[in-house]
Design a protein around this nucleic acid. Sequence first.
DNA 1: ACGGTGATTTGACCCAGATCAAAACTGAAG
DNA 2: CTTCAGTTTTGATCTGGGTCAAATCACCGT
Lengths: 245, 245
Amino acid sequence: MRDSELPAIRRLPLFRTMSEENFMSLTRAAYVQTFPPQVLLIEEGAQPDFLHIVMEGAVELFAGWHRRETTMAIVRPVSTFILAACIKDAPYLMSARTLEKTRIILLPVGDLNSIFRRDPDFAMATVEELASCYRRVVRQSKDLKLRSTRERLAAYVLRKSADAGGTASLVLPVEKRLLASFLGMTPESLSRAMRSLKDDGAKIDGQRVIITDRAALEALARPSILIDGPDFERAEEPDTSSATP
Amino acid sequence: MRDSELPAIRRLPLFRTMSEENFMSLTRAAYVQTFPPQVLLIEEGAQPDFLHIVMEGAVELFAGWHRRETTMAIVRPVSTFILAACIKDAPYLMSARTLEKTRIILLPVGDLNSIFRRDPDFAMATVEELASCYRRVVRQSKDLKLRSTRERLAAYVLRKSADAGGTASLVLPVEKRLLASFLGMTPESLSRAMRSLKDDGAKIDGQRVIITDRAALEALARPSILIDGPDFERAEEPDTSSATP
DNA sequence: ACGGTGATTTGACCCAGATCAAAACTGAAG
DNA sequence: CTTCAGTTTTGATCTGGGTCAAATCACCGT
């Protein structure tokens, strides 16, 4: 592994708080590999062997059932994936494949679990991480069950815009085919929904989306902090101003 | 709290492994309340105050968005809910209401977190619990995205049958209106889907479902361990028989 | 038993989104 | 530059489920 990569990993919430000693021993045991696009990294149903960390590129998490397939998440650097399966030592519920040339760090579950068992700070970080993962999926479920396809797409565009710092113009980070699957619709529906957003404040040009009327788009998407994030919410700071009951 | 309830709580995976001392101090700080049906226990967006444990009755977890509402889960005794929000001290993503007369134990988040921070066994159990919750929601998402309403209903019936020990006859544990919402369909659709299952090996009579042809029902639902559970999967036992490659 | 309220079912209709088919575009390999 | 394969768009059509409305049904409390 490149030493230059260690700080980026260390900065992840999952590893930030653990002891230096344990961090070193964990990363010393790690494997690193670079994969071309479209490589199957993980097959659902298999037993976990490594906690994966994406350093460069992108990974699709997807699930299949009887000829059908759906995209569950897209993982970009720097983040870990399939932590829950590793912790439970239970079969993967999702498959994973590279979308681009992708550099992955593999931490053997054995090392992970043994350190996890003796480093309380790491255990604590794991709890935080799993709680975040859980809440992310709950949000996705709500998005899926409560919004129509157009509303879902509009909300997605607003989220990405927010991620990019609130810019009006943004580039879709993935193929539309994938985005459609992630959003729970067909590519055809996505294409049409996207075009139909012109009347609601967003137009598309290739991979670029331009928000022409944020108010209108928000009127459609009705973004909610309880669905659309942000992912890392915290309790409100205590109000330091004078009492306002 | 009734002392007779303590063993049932203690038996929960979340509390089974913690020290007796911490368990006692946690439960000594607890409140107990019995609520009539249809009482709102938790409102989404609020800050967590207590970890809830259902001792008797049933609780619906649901989420709303702009006039729409959907059932996310139904919690039955003895189990905890909204652990993730408590751990992260982040706003509830779901609301909760009683469905029946329900007895709830409330553990103040303060006590929970302080014990959680000094009892490694409890921290470990929390990790397991959160990983389970996460995997449950991932399964639900897959169910929702990959199956049609009829398939989803068929799979639900098979799951409930399995829960009941594989019996052919079972009683729906909740109102159909709720079940419909949980399964992501309207009551009308549920009603029709249910009747249409007659051709696929299941018939309904009031709240009772009778599986008349399990093979046919399975052909429709195509149950998968990666969607339909069981919830508490474990790694395979090593095969002790002679090698069969 | 009687009314009343909400759950469930049934029927008629509709529509969002899927499917099927084909054209237009895009990009990588030679 | 051309070819080829995959993606995206467009058009036409279909249909799974939703919506609306009304009839039953089931379970209350009186």
